[in-house]
């Protein structure tokens, strides 16, 4: 297995708060890696380091062996797509949203909508008329249009119902079968059990392993 991302002694500090305390981690290619842990443990900060929406206070992060700080952030973000906790659709129709990622013919949009299980008729729908699950899938479609190698999923199902959650989970695992790498943040331990091929447990800004990690993962979700 080759590592997509490697974290070496990574610390992130926001004013007085240390969000990550000396992280060392390798995230494997073409796997679903789930970052889990209690609220405020640094999961989202760790995820946002992968596409440089955050930068380390010290230490370094590499992407396929290259230090992230030496890569063009705009090019990197097309290769490392991200879906956020709440569907962040822009004003306008689904087509407008897809065009924000890639101006293209409708046939390209219909194809990507089919990939995420949405009807092509929804192209003309206004973003705010979609259900939470549809909106999140539209966001995923928008992200896929940049043809990413990695998908960062920041608790993407936290505002979705059970059915919509399962659909998104299946989509993510399908995408891994198609060759993508998925890094998924979740505090839902049942979800971790369903989708994780690799699990990283974060507590209070540090990665825990062994007995403390097993104890955390064994809790009722």
């Amino acid at each position: 297995m080759t590592a997509v991302f490697e974290f070496e002694h990574v610390r992130v500090r926001f004013d007085e708060h240390e969000a990550l305390r000396g992280i060392g981690l390798a995230i494997e290619d073409r796997r679903v890696t789930v970052l889990t842990g209690p609220s405020g443990s640094g999961k989202t900060t760790l995820l946002r380091l992968c596409n440089r929406l955050e930068v380390p206070t010290s230490g370094r992060v590499t992407f396929r062996g290259t230090d992230l700080s030496s890569l063009d952030p705009l090019g990197l973000r097309k290769r490392v797509g991200m879906v956020f906790q709440r569907p962040a659709l822009f004003a306008g129709t689904v087509r407008d949203n897809l065009a924000a990622a890639l101006p293209a013919e409708d046939s390209i949009y219909e194809e990507v909508l089919a990939r995420v299980g949405l009807q092509s008729a929804s192209l003309d729908n206004l973003g705010d008329t979609l259900s939470g699950g549809e909106a999140q899938r539209a966001c995923l479609a928008r992200t896929l249009l940049t043809d990413p190698e990695v998908l960062l999923m920041d608790e993407p199902t936290s505002s979705l119902d059970e059915r919509a959650t399962r659909i998104l989970e299946e989509l993510a695992t399908d995408l891994v079968r198609q060759g993508l790498t998925v890094v998924w943040v979740s505090h839902d331990l049942a979800q971790v059990r369903r989708i994780a091929e690799e699990t990283v447990v974060l507590i209070d800004g540090s990665i825990v392993t062994g007995e403390p990690a097993s104890r955390y993962l064994a809790r009722d979700s």
Binding site: L74, R77, G81, M82, A91, A100, A101
Partner: peptide
């Protein structure tokens, strides 16, 4: 902020992300 960061995450420059 969520929308702006979603635009940045698509590879938009800060200028393009802030424009709307």
């Amino acid at each position: 902020r969520a929308e702006v960061e979603a635009r940045l995450a698509l590879g938009h420059s800060s200028h393009d992300a802030a424009r709307p």
